[in-house]
Design a binder for these strands. Structure first.
Lengths: 104, 104
DNA sequence: ACACTATTTGGCGATTTTGCCAAATAGGCA
DNA sequence: TGCCTATTTGGCAAAATCGCCAAATAGTGT
């Protein structure tokens, strides 16, 4: 892995790290339906609103979601719908794992 | 997010965490070509072999790769080729980010 | 049994991530 | 202006992750 290659994989890792959290996956899943503001998502997830805000910042910095301020609220929506394919891949891995479990 | 939903997303996160590291992404990328043993991958990555072994264990526990002992070596190969689609998604996010950068 | 190679495991310090609280910021409305 | 709601930021302690070293394990060949 030379320096250039290393930097490329670290960039890939930066995006994939943004996805590596249950709450953030949940947020993506929800934003697939429609856009939501921080308060909405906070109620759904059930942690402190500052925590949700930070999760949203991480996803935004990764370029996965975007925000738009309207009136009193900040609405977030999916920017890269391709992450949904990543989603289906994750469920794929899990179901394959389960199948392999049953074989044994 | 009720208890069941919560557990589902934590399971998804468990898989996505396994992918969230430059070395592990590199390993997946390499195993896409052909199978490799720990020593091979260690030389390519350039960190301690025990570190590589642990990365491989994480990927194996996530069900993304499998191992097979032959002779003196343990060979690893991709189990879930669907992770490659995740790969293309990550590069997609990055190139979309770059495009958006250039717009501004 | 011994030496050698490949791999895994245990453990440790260093770094990063997580989630809460409190405080700061921003906009809407009386 | 002052109050209220929504959101972000700073800071901190707890937890998780990372990578090295040393030691343990396993298989090969002598």
């Amino acid at each position: 892995m030379d320096e250039i290659e290393k930097r490329q994989f670290e960039e890939l890792a930066r995006i994939s790290k943004a996805l590596a959290h249950a709450s953030r996956l949940f947020i993506i899943h929800k934003l697939d339906e429609q856009e939501y503001c921080v308060k909405d998502l906070t109620e759904m997830i059930g942690v402190d609103i500052s925590t949700v805000s930070k999760h949203l910042t991480i996803l935004k910095n990764a370029g996965i979601i975007t925000d738009e301020k309207r009136g009193n609220c900040v609405y977030y929506k999916l920017q890269c719908r391709c992450v949904l394919s990543m989603f289906s891949c994750l469920t794929d891995v899990i179901s394959t794992n389960r199948e392999r479990m049953n074989e044994i």
